[in-house]
């Protein structure tokens, strides 16, 4: 089995058959506020604890926001920056892409300075303002991701869904081209069950590896993201409003 890069969320690592593959691009897509950035910060923090320094490349939030959010989980990002294990870089897609493409650019120097092994790009959605042409956009992102791979980084990208609840047009999301250029694709969803809002996580794909295809519950707790049990006895989870499966179907197909 290939060496794996732990995400910092043991339950997600199990779903991924051990973790992410090194030097790959991994997309985390989901509705606003459902935990994409938390997962991303957890991925970066995990690296710092294992001697794998990390970069957070933010296109939206100010670095102060990451320091504050991380502190709520007990992760001292300012201290990690002082120790040379982390850099929170604020930039824009057009500048960071152009900077990474040139020799010895500013971002490349920062990556080299801390010997970074991981990077969180939060969020790749901002690239969409660079072109309305999906082919051009796909090529822009492909080139950007390759510049990160060239530096030996394992990349986690976040992408915001345009919907809050339920089913995105998954096929449409995949066909936008991003799924072809990333190595794994993880989706986070809000779902309503018995008048309660739950969170769901599913690994849609991981290139070159088996993965758990079940839909799992997850929560954001005091330690960050925690993956719980798989949803059972319901269908239509991805629609956001699942229904209970027929009892006979449960008896026939669902392991107790």
């Amino acid at each position: 089995m290939n060496q794996r890069v732990n995400t910092g969320v043991p339950g997600l690592d199990k779903m991924l058959n051990g973790g992410l593959l090194p030097q790959t691009s991994n997309l985390v897509e989901g509705a606003p506020g459902c935990g994409k950035s938390t997962l991303g910060m957890q991925f970066i923090y995990e690296g710092t604890q294992k001697g794998e320094p990390g970069i957070i490349l933010t296109f939206e939030e100010f670095p102060q926001q990451y320091y504050r959010d991380a502190a709520t989980y007990g992760w001292d990002f300012k201290k990690l920056e002082r120790e040379g294990l982390l850099r929170v870089i604020m930039s824009s897609p057009e500048v960071s892409k152009a900077d990474l493409e040139r020799v010895n650019g500013t971002i490349e120097k920062m990556i080299d300075a801390i010997h970074a092994k991981r990077i969180l790009v939060d969020s790749i959605s901002q690239f969409e303002r660079m072109s309305e042409d999906p082919v051009v956009l796909r090529n822009l992102i492909y080139s950007f991701l390759n510049s990160l791979k060239r530096k030996g980084l394992t990349t986690m990208l976040t992408r915001e869904s345009s919907y809050l609840w339920g089913e995105s047009d998954t096929e449409e999301e995949l066909d936008s081209g991003l799924s072809f250029v990333v190595d794994s694709y993880i989706t986070l969803r809000y779902v309503e069950i018995d008048s309660t809002v739950n969170r769901a996580i599913i690994v849609m794909k991981i290139r070159g590896s088996a993965h758990d295809t079940r839909i799992f519950q997850f929560d954001i707790g005091a330690q960050g993201m925690e993956v719980g049990k798989p949803f059972e006895g319901q269908e239509g989870i991805l629609s956001g409003a699942p229904t209970r499966m027929a009892e006979s179907f449960i008896k026939a197909f669902v392991k107790r």
Binding site: P63, Q64, R87, I89, M90, S91, S92, V95, T106
Partner: peptide, 16 residues
């Protein structure tokens, strides 16, 4: 000072 690893253009820094 508050965002010491910022690398950006005039337009974006103006926005920030």
């Amino acid at each position: 000072y508050e965002n010491p690893h910022t690398i950006d253009s005039v337009e974006n820094i103006a926005r920030y």
